[in-house]
Amino acid sequence: MITKKEEVKKINNKELKNLEGYIKDFWKFLPIPVCFVNPFNTILNITGKFEKFSGYKETEIIGENLSTVFPAQGFILEVLADTRENGVVDKKEAIFITKDKKEIYVTISTSQRKDEEDSFSGYFLSISDVSESKTFQKKLEEEVKGKTEELQRKVSELEKFQKFSVGREVKMRELKKKIGRLEERSGTASSE
């Protein structure tokens, strides 16, 4: 005979099992790299996409400091401070380093978590790969730089040409004046 207490325990266990499956499936499904980080900046949980994006297995990266993937000096402390202060960080630019040391331009967003005592208990951090748009932007910047240099070169050529033309004009004027004077002089001489 099952007592009421045992029955409740059985139901609770079933609910817990469902919840476990739900949480695991959700972290596995999330199609973006996300991790949960504690106030020590230690990574405590990651999505399946984070594994693929970083190249680290769950067992390799959980328990490691966030600086493993964001090694820029002071960056993660800044993120932690901003998240604590404002609750969120929105689209901050960063460079993510994968397990095989590949640098990827990303933007990160965070959202803080608080416990039942309203103490800061860590934060979620999501990563968006912006390397394509960053590469495009770089290419565009390089093109603009190239065109600007070309333009400057042409302006400089024009300036030289203008200088030359002006010099030529002045010379022509001087020569015309000289001819005029000579003509005047020769006219006077013939009339004499």
Partner: peptide, 19 residues
């Protein structure tokens, strides 16, 4: 050594890893 990294129970109790 690896177990806490993948343990579901540890994940549930991660709110205690704040200090």
């Amino acid at each position: 050594y690896t177990a806490p990294k993948t343990s579901f129970i540890v994940k549930l109790l991660m709110k205690f890893f704040i200090s």
